[in-house]
Design a protein around this nucleic acid. Structure first.
Lengths: 227, 227
DNA sequence: TTTAGTCCAATTGTCGACAATATGAGTCGA
DNA sequence: TCGACTCATATTGTCGACAATTGGACTAAA
């Protein structure tokens, strides 16, 4: 079950469906990171023509999941620690700005909804304490709403359309199950208050620290694993 | 004469060439902003098949110059004041982060080159005082080097590959000829010093203010024109 | 006059085949 | 044995044709 993604429309054409299928398989690692994409092979696998498959590949490239070279072909992106670090740096900058704009541009009812979402997560969290998956969905949900609250189409397009699935891919492949759930939840609340107070500067700083903390947490974990 | 773009490789396939041609025509406004893209018509115009043209359209969509709807077609993006504002907000966030990372990651010889570039611009500027075009090239050149200096592949891909031409499109269509040339030049120097001092925090703030000032300058100009 | 429905023309999506290019095995010569 | 060259094979790029869908013109009924 896919969680709702406000930036995507329902799949219309068959290329849409192949795109979504492959996107899912790459994110989940069923198609291995770094592996070569063979157009004839996959066209046969999904029972479509190469034209349709190539259309799907173009969209996968748009969301940074594969890379193409002229006359050579496509490869699934590699998931490196360096790459993870880079993604988080981009997110820190963009979501920080989104948060500042959200404090400036969100409607009152949007803020009320954001608060309700957080409350719901708080209640759920006590029930399902320790079950990380829900927290992750809740985390994505919160970040999504803030990004949408920026009311900046470019920002939304980049974060929700072009970077979102790459972030998910890293989460899956590095097996991140949000080990700082309660802390993250409190940080979300602090961000929400800053937005409600229309304090854009503080909201941006809190969001940046929140993402940076998440990044450091992952770095520490990977470092510990490699020992 | 196109200025060098470090993020692009030379055109290999015919789709590459069509892409570059159309990109240029859209940026310069020869293909009107907001106009509908007719695949059969353009395929005939450029003497290629629709497949090849569609490949080019996919790349134009990747750099945000056109928008596609399933079963309906493509349109060139509109250039609105709102859109301009949004682009500058994204740039402020991303180039600010790039500048912070540049202070942290640039090699000493890269910094030396950056300084040389600025000096060259300073000398040229005195000679060609008032001629804005060169300054604009110089401006792009400076920003480019800082972005590359971040050594963050994702950041480089987004700024130099996906947003660069949209920025150029706005510059062309709104007829921006950098009316604050000397001031901008001094700001560039201040940024360069912060990078040389390895002061990432200051470097980020200076870059953000630099871009915000540029944005406000444009806003004022447009406001004055509409009176 | 307005609104709903139908049909037609044009556009987009998909397909299979051919042309151009890269990869790798094999051969020859130093 | 090593390196460069040749050639065959497989993959990617491009093409033209067909199928599916959309948007608009036209008709007819309320």
């Amino acid at each position: 079950m896919n969680l709702k993604n406000p930036a995507r429309q329902a799949p219309i054409t068959t290329a849409d469906k192949i795109f979504e299928t492959m996107q899912h398989e790459i994110v989940e690692g069923e198609i291995l990171a770094g592996s070569k994409i063979s157009e004839p092979e996959l066209a046969k696998k999904y029972q479509v023509s190469r034209s349709t498959l190539r259309e799907a590949l173009n969209r996968l490239e748009k969301c940074h999941l594969i890379e193409r070279k002229a006359n050579v072909g496509s490869r699934v992106v590699e998931c490196s620690v360096q790459g993870l670090l880079e993604i988080y740096q981009v997110r820190e900058a963009l979501e920080g700005m989104a948060c500042r704009l959200a404090a400036q541009n969100m409607q009152d009812d949007e803020i009320a909804e954001l608060q309700q979402v957080l409350n719901a997560h708080g209640n759920e969290q006590q029930l399902k304490d320790g079950i990380a998956y829900y927290q992750e969905e809740g985390d994505l949900d919160f970040h999504y709403r803030v990004i949408l609250g920026s009311h900046n189409e470019q920002l939304i397009k980049i974060l929700c359309g072009e970077l979102y699935h790459l972030v998910r891919m890293y989460r899956c492949q590095f097996g991140m199950n949000s080990p700082r759930a309660t802390r993250a939840y409190d940080e979300h609340k602090a961000i929400m208050y800053a937005i409600a107070d229309r304090d854009g500067e503080l909201a941006e700083m809190l969001m940046r620290r929140h993402i940076a903390a998440s990044r450091k947490n992952i770095e520490n974990k990977l470092e510990k694993e490699s020992e």
